[in-house]
Computed example of a mutant assay.
Amino acid sequence: MFVISDFIRVERMPGFSCKLCAQCCRDRIVVLYDRDIERLSEAGFSDFYEEASELELYLTGAKYRMKLKENGECIFLKDDRCIAYEYRPDTCRRYPFIVGEDFILASISCPGIKWDEEGDAEPFREPSEEISRALRRIIKL
């Protein structure tokens, strides 16, 4: 089973503190944009992506997605840690949020979200640029 989307629109940015559970690195489609491919390739990583489906391209504007291991884990996950963390894709950099110009989406399944606290949207804004632009084309947010 793969999670396609578990995001809901929220009125304010909740707090966040990563629990290092690696739940977001399993059974999820990680879309990749050109700058993700360039960043990871320049860091020496290869054979980590494949073409996105037509639906993924339509929904996210991403032409590629991360390859996964047979068990559904990201190929960069080793001992519950990302071996490419410094070079990780924008999908991973923005998770568990998508921050647009006038909307915030938050993952309902991330255990690190602190719903009762106020958070800072700015660190998530730049990695959200491409997907928020694609979402705005197809959904009224």
Rank of each mutant, 00 (worst) to 15 (best):
M1C: 02
F2E: 00
F2C: 00
V3I: 10
S5V: 07
F7M: 08
F16H: 11
F16V: 06
C18D: 08
C18I: 06
L20N: 02
C21V: 05
C21N: 04
R26K: 09
D27P: 00
V30S: 02
F45I: 10
S46I: 10
F48T: 00
S53L: 13
E56V: 03
E56L: 15
L57V: 14
L57D: 04
Y58N: 04
L59D: 10
A62D: 03
Y64T: 01
L68F: 05
K69R: 14
N71R: 08
E73H: 10
E73D: 15
C74W: 14
C74E: 02
I75P: 01
L77Q: 01
D80E: 13
D80S: 14
R81P: 02
I83F: 02
Y85V: 11
E86S: 13
E86Q: 14
E86N: 09
Y87V: 11
T91M: 12
R93K: 13
Y95G: 01
Y95C: 02
F97Q: 03
G100W: 10
F103S: 07
I104H: 05
I104V: 15
C110I: 15
G112R: 10
I113M: 12
I113W: 15
D116V: 06
E117D: 12
R125C: 06
S128A: 07
L135W: 07
R137K: 15
L141T: 09
